[in-house]
C-alpha cells in the first residue's frame, strides 16, 4: 500500500480545508466478514487483544457463548451470538463479528469537536488519535453502531483501528490473519464487494437462503467493513446490527444547521451589540436624586 493511502481526507473539529481532500479513492481497503462460514471460535477476539497489547478481562457467564455484552475500550472485537429459529422451524446460531465499521461517512468524526482526535485516511480507515482526544464522548453519540467506548482510566475513547499500523506496512489486520476458516477476507473495497456478491449469490442459489445479501449500508456512505448475511433483510437478528444506519439526526442537526445558527447567533449578537453602541452610545448613568423623604 502506498503512503498516499494514509493521507488524511477528513479531520474532526478542524478549521479550514483538509489538505489532500478529493484524491483518487481506488485503493480503499475493506474487511469482508462472511457470517455464513464464521464458526464463532473467537480467534479474532484474541488476536486483536494480543496485537494491540491489551490484557485479558474478567468476564461472567450470561447465558451465551458471547464473551461480554458489548465491545469495550480494551476489547475492540466481539463475536455476537444469536439463536434464531427460521419459519420452517429449523435452527440457526447467528454469529457476527462486531467491531468498528469504518464508515465512509463516519458519525463519530462528524460529532467530534476536538481537532484531529478522529481522522479518516484515503484508504477508508477511521482512526482515533488519542493524543488529541478530550474525552467528551460525543463520538459515542455519533456512532450508529454503538462502537466507541470510553476508558475510565485513560479518560479517552477507543475503538478498532482496522489495524492501520499493520495495513500501512502491507500486512492484513490481525483478526484476518488469525481466522482459521477463512471467513474473514481483506483487500480493496472493489474486490471485497465482488467477493461478497459472489458468496451471496451462491447462498441464494445453492444454500436455500433466498434473502442472502451483502451489508454495506448506504446511510453512512457505505462501510469499509462489510458483511455477507444469510438474511440481509433482517440485519437486526445479528446482534442488533442496525438496518439503516446513518449519522444520528441530533448530531447532524447540531453540527450543521444548529452550528450555523449558533454562529449566526454569535455574529448577530456581536453585530447587534456593536450597532446598539454606535446607535445609542454607552449606557448613561442617571445621577441619583437627593432623598426628599418620599417613599415609593
Amino acid at each position: 500500500m502506498s503512503q498516499a493511502s494514509t493521507e488524511l481526507v477528513r479531520i474532526s473539529g478542524h478549521a479550514g480545508t483538509v489538505p489532500g481532500a478529493g484524491l483518487n479513492r481506488e485503493f480503499q481497503v475493506c474487511k469482508l466478514v462472511d457470517t455464513t462460514t464464521c464458526i464463532g471460535c473467537k480467534a479474532c477476539e484474541v488476536a486483536c487483544l494480543e496485537w494491540n497489547g491489551y490484557s485479558f478481562s474478567e468476564t461472567t457467564f450470561d447465558n451465551s457463548y458471547q464473551t461480554m455484552p458489548e465491545t469495550a475500550w480494551n476489547y475492540w472485537n466481539l463475536i455476537k451470538f444469536d439463536e434464531h429459529e427460521r419459519e420452517d422451524g429449523s435452527m440457526m446460531l447467528l454469529m457476527r463479528k462486531d467491531q468498528c465499521m469504518h464508515c465512509e461517512d463516519p458519525g463519530c468524526l462528524a460529532a467530534c469537536p476536538a481537532d484531529a482526535a478522529i481522522v479518516q485516511y484515503a484508504n477508508g480507515i477511521v482512526d482515533f488519535q488519542e493524543a488529541n482526544c478530550i474525552g467528551c464522548g460525543y463520538c459515542i453519540t455519533g456512532c450508529p453502531f454503538n462502537i466507541p467506548k470510553f476508558s475510565p482510566t485513560a479518560r479517552k475513547v477507543f475503538k478498532c483501528t482496522l489495524c492501520n499500523d499493520r495495513v500501512s506496512q502491507g500486512l492484513e489486520p490481525a483478526c484476518i490473519k488469525a481466522c482459521p476458516t477463512g471467513c474473514l477476507h481483506f483487500g480493496t473495497k472493489l474486490e471485497m464487494k465482488e467477493l461478497a456478491q459472489t458468496r451471496a449469490d451462491q447462498l441464494r442459489e445453492h444454500s436455500g437462503f433466498p434473502d442472502a445479501g451483502v451489508y454495506d449500508p448506504p446511510g453512512v456512505g457505505g462501510t469499509h467493513v462489510i458483511y455477507v448475511l444469510h438474511d440481509a433483510k433482517n440485519p437486526e437478528l445479528y446482534g442488533g446490527l442496525p438496518k439503516d444506519p446513518h449519522i444520528p439526526y441530533s448530531v447532524w442537526l447540531w453540527k450543521k444547521p444548529l452550528k450555523w445558527l449558533g454562529n449566526l447567533a454569535i455574529v448577530g449578537g456581536l453585530a447587534g451589540l456593536a450597532w446598539h453602541y454606535m446607535r445609542y452610545g454607552p449606557k448613561k448613568v442617571e445621577p441619583i436624586p437627593p432623598d426628599d423623604g418620599r417613599r415609593p
Binding site: T37, I39, C41, A43, P180, T181, G182, C183, R199, Q202
Partner: peptide, 17 residues
C-alpha cells in the same frame, strides 16, 4: 469439528465455497 478442530474445519468450508 467447527468447535474442536477449527483449523481443520477450514477445509470443509473450502469444499462448500
Amino acid at each position: 469439528p467447527a468447535e474442536n478442530h477449527p483449523c481443520g474445519f477450514k477445509w470443509a468450508m473450502e469444499a462448500k465455497r
